[in-house]
Amino acid sequence: MTASEYDRCVDLYSDNLYRFVLKSLRDEEQAKDVVQESFLRLWENREAVISGKEKGYLFTIAYRLVVDQIRMRQRYVGGEQVLINRGSSQRGEFDNLSETIERYLDLLPPIQKSLILLRDYEGYSYREMAEMTALSESQVKVYIFRARVTLKKYIGDINDIL
């Protein structure tokens, strides 16, 4: 990969990668760091990365960095409570269903959340997601199903309240 081909990857994928990481971590600075680190690794491994697989490579690296970040948070702050608290600072009113869904994303376990983001935003297949996350395809489906059920339950509850 030449410098110009690499730069094209920045143009094509940095927004989507940032969206994935930002929504996973809910922290702009950390998200920027992860995106930068992912692109740095792409550059360092530019000879090894197969042409056409750059996007998958970037998301794989970013996913691992996100998982590391979340583990570190859990270690230092104690459990997933942090993510849940941040995410559920509700405003009480919701503009539309998708915004509602996004708020409840934070209630999901981190892996389920990342998988939903990869699936819905990036349109990755279950097989591709399995490769990226080092899970089996069947595990990926299990997580996605559980995530959808959980989200549906929360949204259903909200509708009942309204």
Binding site: Y18, L22, Q36, I101, L117
Partner: peptide, 16 residues
Amino acid sequence: PVLSVDRVEFPDKERL
């Protein structure tokens, strides 16, 4: 429940 498209822009493209 599926996430709908939400555009986010990475602010420091040129630095990358």
